[in-house]
């Protein structure tokens, strides 16, 4: 039983390292879209790993921890996608390093409507 707890603790530590790196990326990246990239991926992965480690430590808590993992894994990408799309329509600028922007080209060619309300 002791070995399971140690495995769980190591997994939790890895998760918290991922969370820390995500927050570091949030500070270092140059524009909103890159921040969302690192923020979403690392925070989802970090939280899921933290909860997975706790499942190893307390096998009796598996129900609620599993619900939390599922919920974070589904809701976090959706909310950041909605945020990114609406920020783009609102006109948050891209960074200078950006090489190509197909969405702006298509909006200019009238292939895509500039605002849509399909949430």
């Amino acid at each position: 039983m002791e070995i399971l707890k140690i495995i769980g603790a190591v997994i939790t530590l890895m998760g918290s390292i991922a969370l820390f790196l995500g927050a570091l990326g949030l500070v270092r990246m140059p524009d909103l879209y890159n921040r969302i990239q690192t923020g979403t991926k690392a925070s989802t992965f970090g939280t899921v790993l933290t909860l997975l480690g706790l499942i190893f430590i307390f096998p009796g808590w598996v129900g609620k921890l599993f619900i939390l993992m599922l919920f974070v894994g589904i809701s976090n990408p959706v909310s950041s996608h909605v945020l990114a799309r609406n920020a783009y329509r609102y006109g948050v600028p891209l960074s200078d390093k950006t090489t190509v922007d197909r969405l702006a080209e298509d909006i200019e060619n009238k292939e895509v409507e500039p605002v849509n309300n399909a949430l």
């Binding site: 921040r35 969302i36 970090g46 939280t47």
Partner: peptide, 17 residues
């Protein structure tokens, strides 16, 4: 505002852990 919202999102997700 959008930068603040994504920071808030990461903060709350970290708080769940």
């Amino acid at each position: 505002t959008a930068d603040r919202v994504i920071a808030f999102d990461v903060m709350t997700i970290a708080s769940i852990g």
